[in-house]
Design a binder for these strands. Structure first.
Lengths: 343, 343
DNA sequence: AATTGTTATTAAAACGTTTTTTGACATAGC
DNA sequence: GCTATGTCAAAAAACGTTTTAATAACAATT
């Protein structure tokens, strides 16, 4: 049906080896006439090489597997989008798997993708609460013998390729911004503190407090589940402590705060300032627009793919590399100068 | 490195044909001992068949290409997520391409995916403003000789496989809902009316007006670009006409209305009702939550994949099938009884 | 005229599978 | 004792490429 190299060879009156040599522009002596004949035949037949066959012999498919928890999570959707763009620019295709944060599904996809001959795998997965699950993934990754790039903190070891955000600095600049506006009683709506990234955000937050000589009050830190609806149940605890600002450890929870505060007729930023983390698409659409700590996803995605491409071209040294990116503060309308007298 | 069928054969002391027969559980006479030996060897070596090689001989890769305009568009991200889930349940993997609404990129991915031996392609693309572009895509699709499933209205012909929403009904139920609340001057913030889907939404809207004996006033229909920021420029025109409700043809533009109305101190739904279309994730988070027309993406995704799977198993009759799904009205807090006296 | 060297092309092996055909050996029927 | 009939297993071809080694043709050197 689809023309193969044989068809081109027959049409051009040469052997298939010649066709291959010409198509790949190999540095072997070939007469101009032969080249022209082959190119013409290929053109006329609309010949396109079968990548399956090529992959079988070259062991390269120019395909990268991407395993993320959930593409309906807009953060990952945005990341995926940037990764796909970066991949395409470097000549790679992306094959997608949703792990739903399940170690089984992660392992499933690791194998599935390896079976399909992907050149590398990008894995977005934070630690599992059960260390055994993490170990399972680690084992699977090791057994694969394929480059794996982590874009979240699955393993604590430094000996893996990774592209990460500096979460400490993220927490730090968020706190610094609020402190600069005069806030001293700042609530934290944290993510699960079992996860390294959130520990680090909190540590950065504390560092900023310390530098401003504000005592750290653990009662002002509550834990959420990263979803919007986790804001409502814990908000009263913070309000009771008279916080003048709340640092939500991701934008989704900040949205939850918006909803609940609005229900309570507490105004943002007049009565309380809110700052988020991630800079999702909607943060700029919301009313008032959300001040937040942005992750430079485009740069990170580019870094992921160019590093992988480097590794695959075998231009990387033996050392594995962890690249850490700096977050960027986006000041919008949800934070303002502190107006409460209570220091 | 990775064990192959040969390694299993050697270890089990049989031929590779036997290994293949056993692994695929073929209905051929094989002694239980042989089977056991093969299975054991495979298990011990951790053998997993190379899907590239299998694809080369069977012409099936269990991979489906998905071409969408933009995965950072949360509507498509959600659809992609459902499609991936449905695909995985049926044993397929999804390979992803962002077309950015460019015909060139669409054609690029059509070929790229075909080269990689995908079994089918899912194409989310509305018509191009330039009919020549549409023709280009059509030609590429035809030349592929691979099943292509449309999940948007690229071609007007009925002779393609497609899974679509009943946009007419969507427009109809949105209007009906507002009319039921007593609204008679209803503004439309439409999408580009060059696109069939929006024409149909508008037609459904008009139908509902007609049934309620409300004259259709073209001055109440303005065109947006589907993005949030297209609301602000056209809102004054609608307000001047004293609309008591606005039907935004997608949720993103409804969000734009929220922002602009809030800036103008016009309250939703007290002063004006707003209804959207799509039911994006955020519509339930917003304050007030957005009444909207939902697309049953999970059902549609399942329908896409099960139909494709049917076609690929060659169980489909010769006829191509267009499946149309009914939208669902989600009544939330952004619409209320009309309080203006102006009829 | 024999050797060496270029240049252009091809043959053949390999990649890891599936699948069809062939073959070896027992057992049963005549 | 010979042919038919079953079992089981292996051989071999095929899928569409790349790549290395081989070869052929011819010119240039001795």
């Amino acid at each position: 049906m689809r023309p193969t190299i044989k068809d081109v060879a027959r049409k051009a009156g040469v052997s298939i080896s010649t066709v291959s040599l010409v198509m790949n522009d190999r540095p072997v002596p070939l007469s101009p006439e032969t080249k022209r004949a082959v190119l013409e035949a290929a053109q006329e037949l609309g010949y396109r090489p079968n990548q399956l066959a090529i992959g079988l012999v070259t062991k390269k498919t120019n395909t990268v597997g991407l395993i993320i928890p959930d593409n309906s999570n807009i953060f990952f959707a945005a990341y995926t989008n940037h990764l796909e763009t970066a991949a395409n620019e470097l000549g790679y295709s992306l094959i997608l798997g949703n792990s739903n944060n399940s170690a089984e599904k992660t392992v499933h996809y690791l194998h599935l993708f390896a079976d399909r001959g992907v050149d590398a795998i990008i894995l977005a997965q934070s630690e599992f609460s059960d260390p055994e699950m993490t170990q399972k993934c680690l084992d699977a990754v090791r057994s694969l013998r394929i480059p794996v790039m982590l874009i979240d903190r699955l393993f604590r070891t430094r000996s893996t390729e990774a592209v990460l955000l500096d979460h400490f600095e993220g927490g730090y600049i968020a706190a610094q911004h609020l402190i600069g506006l005069g806030h001293r009683r700042i609530g934290c709506l944290s993510g699960p503190l079992g996860l390294t990234s959130f520990q680090e955000r909190l540590a950065g937050f504390c560092q900023a407090l310390e530098e401003a000589d504000i005592p750290y009050d653990p009662a002002l830190v509550v834990e959420g589940n990263l979803l919007a609806d986790s804001a409502a149940p814990v908000l009263p605890a913070l309000l009771k402590r008279h916080v003048s600002a709340i640092f939500a450890f991701n934008d989704m929870m900040a949205y939850g705060l918006y909803k609940e505060l609005s229900r309570m007729k507490i105004r943002i930023p007049e009565d309380i300032s809110v700052i988020g983390f991630d800079d999702l698409f909607f943060s700029d659409v919301l009313q008032p627009s959300l001040t937040t700590v942005a992750q430079p996803l485009d740069k990170m995605a580019k870094a992921v793919m160019s590093r992988l491409s480097q590794i695959l071209r075998e231009e990387a040294g033996g050392e594995s590399l962890t690249q850490v990116f700096r977050p960027v503060l986006k000041v919008r309308d949800s934070t303002s100068v502190c107006r409460t007298e209570t220091a």
